[in-house]
Amino acid sequence: MMPGDITPFIISIVLGVLFGTQLSGKISKGTTILVIIFSIVGALLFGAFMFTYSIYGGYIMPGLGFATPLIGATIGILIGKALKGE
């Protein structure tokens, strides 16, 4: 594992929190679940980033992987929204 595998994930969470705090209004439970499901599907579609070769970077086997920053960003946004409240 190289540090470069994980750093994008951490950055994505931080940025997600930052932009999550800029959301207003209420986010329903349905929306939350929908967003999480779609970001997992999206992450699988995009696959792991090039030159990442560890499970931490989202790499499972050749041709299969998930984009951790996409999931990280979604989680970050939801955390940011929760921190800010309505």
Partner: peptide
């Protein structure tokens, strides 16, 4: 929201 996440990715 998904677009925002995509942008961050």
């Amino acid at each position: 929201i998904l677009l925002l996440s995509y942008g961050i990715m």
